[in-house]
Every structure is written in structure tokens, then in C-alpha cells.
């Protein structure tokens, strides 16, 4: 399936002008790959044909948006990051009677449950509210259901052990058939809500924001915009955790953050 650059540009422009979905500042190479993948999946031959399909059919439009905006993650991905979080951030969170965490671009929620488990083991879950947001409503639904394929657990258990978890990972879910369901006590302080980092604004103030492997899908312009949004959403000395290959390099706010752990991409608003 071949999609030319100018066709893709035109398609994204139309998508924004007609429906308000703004993918224009997404990193093109991976977005193009996803769209081509979608065309193949649906046996659609061109972007022109795709446009005709979605223009008059809201369901088809929704379906396409869900497919191209889906992101994948895992529990305790990069155990050393969460180790660092535990070491540097948890002690401060313990000093607050109450605090808020934002997991931005949470996809299907694996990192939301990761954070909930860390807070629970620190005895902080009752004092916190976790806001878990994503552009993709289908992913959010799966996140709030808290049901995950059992095949993934082996990897998550290994990650959890590398992280240095205090208990047995299996105590946090119950397994049935080919799936596991995360314990409800983990999610009772989690708020799952739609939020589009490309267009939506500040909605609360947070002591900690986690946004890992989301910025890599954005171009420099949108990265800058999102980091500014995080800056405005953090309390004074609030923490920001990014993915292992992400940085503040392309943002005008890089001087407004202190590196807490350079390797693990953990920052503090200063």
C-alpha cells in the first residue's frame, strides 16, 4: 500500500477541518505506517477511498480514529524507571495529605495499574487520585475494565520482580479463562477520562505527571505544546516522568525543569 506524503498531508488537513481530529502535528513516519496498516486491514485502496468511507459514516470515522491512535504499553515497562520513581518521588508524595497523579496518554491502562500498585505498596493509594486519560475511548474503556490477557502476565511478573516489588504480583489480580482482572481496590481512586493532548487544555493540578512513550509520536511543535501543558498542570516542584528515549530538548520549558534522574527521564518543575 503506497501513500504519498502530499496525499497524507491533504487527508490530515481535511480530517481536521471537517471533524476536528488533529493529527497534523504527529510524527509522520509512524502515523503513515498506521494509516497504511488500516488501509490494508480494511482492504481500502487509497486515502481518497478512505475519505469517501468516513465522510458520511460516523461509525467508520470513529473506528479509523481508534485504530490509528491506539498505543501499546505494558505493566512496569522499564522497571528501572519505576525504581527511580519509587526512590525519588514516593518519599515526597508521602509528605502530602492528599495528592493527584495524571497518567497522560494511558492507552489501555497498564501503566495506570503500575502506578496504583506502587502507591498501594507505599501505603499511599488511599491518599491519591489518579487521572488516566487518552484520546482513544476504546482504549480507555479497556483500561477501566482492567482486564488483560493472561499471556502478558509472565512478562509483567518479570518486570515487577526487576522493579523490586514488595509482594507477589499475582496478588493484584484474579485469573479466569485466558484473562486476568485487576483487583477493584486498585482502581477505586482512578478516574478514566478522554483527553486529547493535541487540542485539550489544563484540567487540574498535579503532584506527578507520567507520560511515557507518547511524545515520540508527536513532532517538535506538538511536543513543545504538550510539555507546556504539563508545566502548567504541575504544582510547584511537581514531578514529570517521560519515556526512556524522550527528552525536554525540543521545548522552550527545558530550563524550567530540574533533572532528577537523567537516565530514567524523571524531571521536577522548578
Amino acid at each position: 500500500m503506497e501513500v504519498e506524503e502530499h496525499q497524507l498531508w491533504g487527508f490530515l488537513e481535511k480530517l481536521y477541518l471537517n471533524f476536528g481530529y488533529d493529527f497534523r502535528d504527529y510524527a509522520r513516519a509512524s502515523l503513515k505506517r498506521r494509516i497504511c496498516h488500516y488501509l490494508q486491514l480494511k482492504k481500502i485502496n487509497s486515502l481518497h477511498e478512505l475519505w469517501e468511507t468516513i465522510e458520511s459514516n460516523e461509525l467508520a470515522l470513529e473506528q479509523m480514529i481508534q485504530e490509528i491512535s491506539v498505543t501499546v504499553t505494558e505493566m512496569f515497562r522499564d522497571p528501572t524507571f519505576f525504581k527511580s520513581l519509587n526512590k525519588h518521588v514516593i518519599p515526597r508524595l508521602k509528605t502530602y495529605p492528599f495528592f493527584k497523579v495524571w497518567v497522560a496518554g494511558c492507552a489501555t491502562g497498564e501503566e495506570v495499574y503500575t502506578i496504583a500498585i506502587i502507591l498501594k505498596e507505599a501505603g499511599l493509594l488511599e491518599r491519591s487520585i489518579i487521572y488516566a486519560t487518552d484520546i482513544n475511548q476504546h482504549s480507555l474503556k479497556r483500561a477501566s475494565d482492567g482486564i488483560f490477557p493472561i499471556d502478558s502476565m509472565k512478562n509483567y511478573i518479570a518486570n515487577y520482580q526487576q522493579y523490586g516489588g514488595l509482594g507477589e504480583f499475582s496478588q493484584y489480580y484474579s485469573a479466569k479463562y485466558n484473562a486476568v482482572m485487576m483487583n477493584k481496590d486498585l482502581s477505586k481512586n482512578i478516574v478514566f477520562a478522554p483527553h486529547n493532548l493535541a487540542v485539550d487544555h489544563v484540567f487540574n493540578e498535579f503532584e506527578l505527571i507520567i507520560c511515557r512513550n507518547v511524545l515520540i509520536y508527536f513532532n517538535q511543535n506538538l511536543q513543545n505544546k504538550v510539555i507546556n501543558l504539563f508545566y502548567q498542570s504541575l504544582c510547584d516542584f511537581g514531578y514529570l516522568g517521560l519515556g526512556s528515549k524522550e527528552s525536554l530538548l525540543f521545548t522552550d520549558k527545558r530550563k524550567n525543569f530540574v533533572e532528577i534522574d537523567r537516565k530514567e527521564k524523571l524531571f521536577m518543575k522548578s
Binding site: E5, R34, T73, N213, I216, K245
Partner: peptide, 11 residues
């Protein structure tokens, strides 16, 4: 990318 820079994805 078209401008001959790298992009990463965790797809």
C-alpha cells in the same frame, strides 16, 4: 522522516 531525521515508535 521525510526531513531525514529519526522517529521512534513503541507500536
Amino acid at each position: 522522516e521525510q526531513n531525514e531525521t529519526f522517529s521512534l515508535s513503541s507500536d
